[in-house]
């Protein structure tokens, strides 16, 4: 549901709509462009301007701050654990859902989407209720001296939850549209299961998988609400980059906050560029296939 943008693989045919007076076109286009620039682009430019307001040297000095470095490390760690796990899950889920028929399939698809429908704050709360001091498993964890809540482990688990559907959601429609013919042919020609998967399935889903991974990664690194609740915002220990931004804003250290924000914004821009490339490649593949 609410979540990952899907790849748009439709071929466009412009100019076949009802012919309108040219001024209607121009006015509508201008309103749309002004809205997009003013609402989406301007905030981003403002934050870059703010980050570099103190000069380039100040900007780069921020990345020597030990708390900033620790936040970057934790962000990378959470993504490095959550993303591969979600890839394995996504491929397994997409394989079972798209290549086989079984009762309850639609329910399963809906259940996979749940993390998109849950407010990030509630996602965090759930793990607090499960692993926290007053939580269901809290006393047991404390007896074994394991810390999950207000510790890096909690950050990783919360990240895992909010990024859960991304890869599966990209792969399910893609693999459903590809059917099972090629895999069956490979088996018929004597390939074993692993060979079939590696030589047929993986190349077929490559672009969808790349896009799913990049979306999942972008959310994993940028998540705020869910990790905020389980983190306790301890600088140098449980602060990820978005949480460090919040701590710095609270402490009126705006330059550091804006600088970290630009670093995350770059990540978002890379995500959008990869999306554009993947869309371009897939549309071309689609066009070749239909020719």
């Amino acid at each position: 549901m609410a979540g990952a943008p899907k790849l748009n693989l439709k071929q466009r045919h412009t100019g076949r709509s009802v012919t309108k007076p040219i001024w209607v076109r121009i006015i509508l286009t201008l309103i749309a462009i002004i809205f997009l620039v003013g609402f989406l682009l301007l905030p981003l430019l403002e934050v870059f301007a703010q980050a570099f307001a103190g000069g380039v040297a100040t900007y780069f000095a921020t990345f020597k701050d030990p708390f900033v470095l620790s936040a970057i490390r934790l962000t990378l760690l959470a993504a490095a654990i959550a993303v591969p796990l979600n890839v394995v899950f996504g491929v397994a889920a997409a394989w079972s859902i798209s290549k086989f028929n079984f009762p309850g399939k639609n329910i399963l698809i809906t259940l996979i989407d749940i993390p998109f429908a849950v407010s990030p704050v509630i996602a965090g709360l759930v793990f607090l209720l499960l692993f926290g001091h007053q939580g269901v498993l809290g006393p047991w964890l404390e007896a074994h001296n394991w810390k999950i809540v207000f510790a890096p482990a909690g950050i990783v688990i919360a990240t895992l939850f909010v990024t859960f559907p991304f890869v599966a959601r990209e792969l399910i429609p893609l693999m459903q549209s590809q059917g099972t013919d090629e895999e069956q042919a490979a088996l018929m020609l004597g390939a074993n299961g692993w060979q079939m998967f590696r030589r047929i399935t993986v190349p077929n889903i490559k672009w969808g998988l790349i896009y799913g991974v990049i979306l999942c990664n972008s959310r994993a690194m940028g998540e705020f609400g869910a990790v905020y609740v389980v983190s306790g915002s301890i600088q140098g220990v449980t602060n990820t980059m978005p949480l460090e931004i919040e701590t710095r804003m609270e402490n009126f250290d705006f330059t550091t906050a804006y600088t970290l924000a630009t670093a995350l914004a770059m990540l978002a821009l890379i995500t959008l560029i990869v999306k554009t490339i993947v869309e371009y490649r897939s549309t071309r593949l689609l066009a070749e296939a239909t020719e």
Binding site: A4, P5, L36, L40, L41, P43, L44, E46, V47, Q50, P120, L215, S218, M221, G222, E223, F224, G225, P242, L243, I245, E246, M249, A257, Y258, A261, L264, A265, L267, A268, L269, T271, L272, K275, T276
Partner: peptide, 20 residues
């Protein structure tokens, strides 16, 4: 492409950008 910016941009970044 920039229509997808709010999807890709971390919410904290969106928040402080808009506030600024």
């Amino acid at each position: 492409s920039i229509v997808d910016l709010p999807f890709a941009l971390p919410t904290a970044v969106a928040g402080i950008s808009l506030a600024a």
